[in-house]
Amino acid sequence: MNGRLETATVPAGMTLLEFLRGRLCLVGTKEGCGIGECGACTVLLDGKPVTACLVLAVEADGGAVDTIEGEARDGELSALQKAFIEAGAIQCGFCTPGMIMSARGLLRRIPNPTDDEIVEAMAGNLCRCTGYEAILEAVRVAAQAKAVPHAGQMVAGQSAGGSGSQGGRLSSPRVPGEGGGRG
């Protein structure tokens, strides 16, 4: 669990979401629908994004679970978290933990994803506030920050905020050549 061993005995009918929130007090993971449709409860199970409401806690036995609480390391926000803040990707914040975990799963699998891959990875997380545009931009920025060394400086400062005055759609330049790398 976020890199630590947790030992517990749970009833078979307990979901992973109930276990995280109720037993481990990891309440950063949210319940939005209970039927896997909204993505608010997305966590990584063995590195892959899943909706914790549709996983039994016992199914995670022996596995690795990553939640939003494990995203920042030693009090330092990840590039992904910083990008969400700077891009204005957060409003009410209820979908944010699930969004970040979906993005984390994507970037682990594909460090430099195409726009289509970003949309595909994030479309299972509903957001009613932002209209998604800034969220997709944040994932793009985080991927680039990771792919290009030292780009972290750019998102850490406040000056990355030009996003507020952009007139049109988000159009980050794509590095050509990837996309064939998967599978």
Partner: peptide, 27 residues
Amino acid sequence: EHAATRWSFPGLAQAAASIATYQLRNR
């Protein structure tokens, strides 16, 4: 993610990709 499926059976891959969400397809 299985290359042989996508090469040999693109219709099956299209069908699988159309189902639910990325998270749910992991399950």
